[in-house]
Amino acid sequence: MLAVANQKGGVAKTTTVASLGAALAQRGRRVLLVDLDPQASLTFSLGVDPEDLDVAVGDVLLGEKDAGDAIVVAEEAVHLLPSTIDLARAEESLASRTGREHRLRAALQGVLDDYDWILLDCPPSLGVLTAAALTAATDLLIPLQCETLAHRGVGQLLDTVHDVRAYTNPDLTVLGVLPTSYDGRTRHARAVLEAITESYDLEVLEPPIPRSIRFAEAPAYGLSILQTATNHRGAQAYRDVADRLLA
């Protein structure tokens, strides 16, 4: 189970989850994507309208429904545990409940054997939902926009990882950072990656994901870039990252 997290918004968490999910499905893996953001960006990106949903991840976290009741089949052979705006209210309710960090892991137990990969799309915060995702996950991937301000929050995220390992999930592994919106022609982008590896001793997953308007266009079709721009270098980059994860 792979959590994709970074409390800074706009670093391509949702794009990474959707694209890696599609790439893993193309490799014949059974894939479940879990949308843990009340903004439901992943749900929208996969062509599912949150307004049409009767059951979503918030109901599952509150114990009102089983995960299997909420999972829908999206495009590109991936399954989705979708989100709606009601997840914001569910998060408020969870904050005062016992065992809140363990709710997601418990909720997914019943479907673990149905999937080879479960990818968790975390919200842009270090609140209850991200803590629950890190508690449930075996591994963490940190998308990182290659700009100075983008990497300032990595230390805070790693502090949270330290706490999670200490109290709720001692086996959580940080796979490393995935550079996104990368322009290798600029000295600045390369310097940011060097600063990350030196400051935090994190592995940089390659290839970096290039900056491209094609990523912003894909959600309008309810598909990932692997379908809307099959031969684009951004699509190939995500396939290569998926192959690295499988290896």
Rank of each mutant, 00 (worst) to 15 (best):
L172E: 06
S93M: 14
L126D: 09
A107L: 01
Q145L: 05
T98I: 06
D163G: 11
N6D: 13
K65H: 01
V17N: 04
L119C: 05
L175S: 02
K65C: 01
E76Q: 14
R27T: 01
D163Q: 14
S224L: 03
A247L: 09
V48P: 06
A5V: 01
D121S: 10
C122K: 02
D35K: 03
E64L: 08
L144V: 13
R190K: 15
Q26G: 13
D52V: 13
H102K: 10
N231Y: 07
Y238P: 05
V164R: 02
L42K: 04
H162Y: 13
E101H: 11
V48I: 15
V73K: 13
A220M: 07
D159T: 15
L119W: 04
S199N: 14
A235S: 15
A137H: 08
G155S: 13
E203D: 15
Q26C: 12
V241E: 03
S96G: 04
T148G: 04
G110H: 02
F215S: 06
M1I: 15
R165C: 09
L202S: 06
I209L: 09
Y238M: 09
R214S: 11
D59Y: 02
V60Y: 04
S96L: 05
V57P: 01
I85W: 12
I225A: 09
Q39F: 03
V78K: 00
V111K: 06
L87T: 12
D139T: 12
A195Y: 11
W117C: 00
L245C: 00
L120V: 01
E101T: 12
P143W: 09
T14N: 01
V55L: 03
S224N: 07
E206F: 03
L158P: 12
V48W: 02
A74I: 10
R27E: 07
Y221V: 02
L223Y: 00
R185T: 15
Y182T: 03
L141S: 03
D201A: 15
D37P: 02
Q26V: 10
L175M: 10
D114I: 00
E51D: 15
P207V: 11
L94S: 02
L120W: 00
Y200D: 02
A70R: 00
A136L: 07
L175V: 10
D37V: 01
V78F: 00
V204S: 04
A216D: 13
L246Q: 08
L108R: 07
A242P: 05
Q109L: 12
L87N: 12
L202G: 00
I118C: 04
A132D: 05
I118G: 05
Y238Q: 08
A95T: 15
D240C: 05
I71D: 02
C122P: 00
V192I: 14
R100D: 12
D243V: 10
M1G: 11
S83G: 12
L61D: 07
G63H: 13
E203S: 15
D66W: 14
T16P: 01
A166L: 13
G110C: 08
P208C: 12
S181K: 14
D240G: 01
E217V: 08
V161K: 10
